[in-house]
Design a protein around this nucleic acid. Structure first.
Lengths: 216, 216
DNA sequence: TGTACATCAGTGAACGCGCGTTCACTGATGTAC
DNA sequence: TGTACATCAGTGAACGCGCGTTCACTGATGTAC
């Protein structure tokens, strides 16, 4: 019995110069929808409009396509992920502590926000228009976050706590494993997973080639 | 300019006792659709009917819901994956060779069939009806395949080629990493990945705790 | 051996739904004179 | 200081589409007598 007759009973129009405020509301609405529904497919133009409390055509004033909205949500999500990682990392001073804390923050972010996390690294876009082979893949906005991981492994090796001689390759391996950890745990919740912290610690130590007698 | 007026210009009806043959055609059609489209969302009741060359209502005689069709496709996919792994494994006799070959077959299957692979381990089902919290998660049909991995690590350790004392936990770690490898490489094709074989070898050796001086 | 009939394996038209997108519009707000 | 007007920030109705699902039907095939 949702009243859909009046799209926005409480929402007042923005004033003359403030039309662009709706743009932010649309992005936040789409993000909330993604988080709440847990599914990329739930984000439709009309659903976002309902979430924000506006009529569907109003969106066209701010975004040309649904993909633009998703892109804006993803940019924001990437930024939150990056901040979570660096914040956790910065609570430690020793290289391995920083590396492990960053990895833990990455994993925790993914487990806490499964749908946004999934969309970050899902190739598939909304419309089927750019499902074509030559479509431009998402610009590698996560590359700088990956570089943080590379640097962290390099620093751990530099401090003598890791045997890594190929931080780039080892970071790729580690990221791969962390991504698998997030997605598999999110998707197969009933699987008899080992305790998260122990599994994470083992994976990080082994793939970043950290010495056995590790320092806390 | 596809002629959709006559659903099946060439397809003759099955004869009296052979109605159940259509069931198999529907499953194969859905599988072909999934493989070709690369997307779970492309599998709709009507799309499957078009693929098979029948009218949409005909499906109801064989399946109650779309999910039943997907389940049948997945059961078949799981079986193909399992066979690919054991076939590759059985070309070797030494435990580590068997382990690595099995892992390689797993990864190759995932990379060769990204859409079916993804659906195997995606929680999300077709309809939103069972997106509810209490919905029954997919029965763990992959558990026996996971057990193959556990056993393979245990045998490698038994032969003295691995230091694993917890094959179950190490198998979880390894599977996690392999899953991440398949999905990330499928989704981020432009990322500067290291060569597949080297990355796979490193991940398997490190997470299965295989000794450095490994035997070929 | 012939024929009426039941059953099987589907079909075709129609429905209501949510979707993206278009179009003409509206009413408040600021600006020019 | 008033007033006509332009502009801004949206709205509401309508469209065509593909979807899942229903319903009554059809025509070939086998079976009973």
């Amino acid at each position: 019995m949702k009243t859909s007759r009046q799209a926005s009973p409480g929402r007042p129009k923005n004033r003359r110069g403030e039309g662009s405020r709706l743009r932010g509301e649309i992005i936040r609405g789409a993000a909330a929808l993604l988080e709440r529904s847990g599914s990329r497919e739930a984000i439709t133009l009309r659903a976002v409009a309902r979430e924000v409390g506006i009529s569907a055509p109003s969106i066209y004033a701010h975004f040309e396509t649904l993909d633009e909205i998703i892109d804006a949500v993803l940019a924001e999500t990437f930024e939150r992920l990056r901040q979570a990682i660096t914040a956790a990392s910065d609570e430690h001073t020793d290289p391995y502590g920083r590396l492990l804390a960053g990895c833990r923050a990455y994993v925790q972010f993914g487990l806490d926000h499964p749908a946004p996390y999934r969309v970050l690294f899902a190739r598939q876009r909304a419309g089927s228009h750019d499902a074509a082979e030559g479509a431009p893949e998402r610009r590698p906005v996560g590359l700088d976050t990956f570089q943080v991981l590379v640097d962290s492994i390099a620093e751990t090796a530099g401090a003598g706590a890791s045997d890594s001689t190929d931080p780039q390759g080892d970071a790729a391996n580690l990221w791969t494993a962390l991504h698998g950890l997030v997605t598999l745990r999110s998707d197969l919740r009933r699987f008899p997973w080992p305790p998260l912290d122990a599994q994470l610690d083992t994976i990080v130590r082994h793939l970043a080639r950290v010495h056995e007698p590790r320092s806390l």
